[in-house]
């Protein structure tokens, strides 16, 4: 593990790990609120936002992309609420209608637009471009201390690290509100916790994670990381605090193992080319969830394990 690793693998692994953790943290609460589909929805609806942002600005620079994606996410949240209330249908169906429509619209606009000059296509939207986020100026581990080399780090790395830190900070700050409002919304309102705002803030944070991660790693990882690590973590413990910690471990594990398997796995089996890192990371997270289902200490079937009356 020398210069090659630092140059070609270190930054993609770190970006993948930060993206996975940033999505897994809010995913814990989305799953407990039975809103896991929201993460799925957001990661799809950012596509039309990004395409429109490209049409308006003519570049694929980070800031306009993020603004476009955030705008699309907000439009989607409003549309989902509108469909749910005006159409009187259940939230899952409302989300399904909105996010498939918006994603399809994004694909159509993308097809009708000349994006051949830039790296923007449907495949990129799904898979991201993790493998291309290499650190050309790195010459070895020593480059981590070299300001000149550090300046040429792919911009996705600091961006993803900051988003990850921001989400972690917000979660720690509002932990008590999140926990109480997620468990018992009526009680939370009664003691003066703005439970509605907490729920809305959670969706906004999930949107920030999805938008930030989308560009680097694509929507497949985003969807997988919102659901798989927290769901696997839930099977490891009966404490919310421990569940969130496990979800971070599983998210990081999936990112690192997924990247390594994608890059080196095919070679071990005699194949020539590496496979998609994003696809492999999502697959590993699914395997982790499968293992947790089979061997997790707190898996149980519905109706099992009631204590006898005292």
């Amino acid at each position: 593990m020398g210069a090659d690793f630092v140059q070609f693998s270190l930054t993609p692994i770190l970006i993948g790990t930060f993206a996975a953790i940033a999505c897994a943290l809010p995913g814990n609460f989305l799953i407990l609120r039975r809103q896991a589909l929201i993460g799925d929805a957001i990661s799809h609806v950012v596509l039309p936002g990004i395409v429109v942002a490209f049409l308006v600005t003519g570049t694929v620079a980070a800031v306009p992309m993020l603004i476009g994606a955030a705008g699309a996410a907000i439009v989607a949240v409003v549309l989902i609420e509108a469909v749910r209330r005006l159409g009187r249908i259940e939230p899952g169906a409302a989300m399904g209608v909105v996010f498939t429509t918006m994603f399809a619209a994004g694909v159509l606009i993308l097809e009708r637009t000349d994006t051949s000059s830039v790296h923007l296509d449907v495949e990129h939207a799904l898979m991201g471009n993790l493998e291309t986020l290499v650190w050309f100026r790195a010459e070895g581990w020593a480059s981590l201390l070299d300001p000149v080399a550090l300046a040429s780090l792919p911009e996705e790395l600091p961006r993803m690290a900051i988003v990850c830190a921001l989400i972690l900070g917000l979660m720690l700050l509002f932990w008590r509100w999140l926990k109480i409002a997620t468990f018992d919304e009526g009680f939370a309102e009664a003691v003066g916790i703005p439970a509605g705002a907490v729920g809305f803030g959670l969706v906004i944070v999930a949107a920030i994670a999805a938008v930030a991660a989308f560009d680097a790693v694509g929507s497949i990882i985003v969807i997988a990381m919102f659901i798989c690590p927290p769901a696997a973590a839930r099977l490891m413990t009966n404490q919310l605090e421990a569940q969130v910690a496990w979800s971070v471990v599983f998210a990081a594990l999936s990112a690192v193992l997924g990247y390594v398997f994608a890059g080196y796995g095919p070679l071990w089996f005699g194949a020539q080319n590496a496979v998609s890192a994003a696809g492999m990371i999502a697959t590993v997270s699914g395997v982790v969830l499968g293992l947790a289902c089979l061997y997790g200490p707190h898996r149980h079937r519905v109706g099992e394990g009631r204590a006898p009356a005292p």
Binding site: R34, K179, I180, F183, D184, F187, V191, T237, L240
Partner: peptide, 19 residues
Amino acid sequence: SVDWDFPTTVIDVVKMGLY
């Protein structure tokens, strides 16, 4: 009105009353 499968313990729920 709540999901009793929520990952928390009995004493933790009581402590919510101290909010």
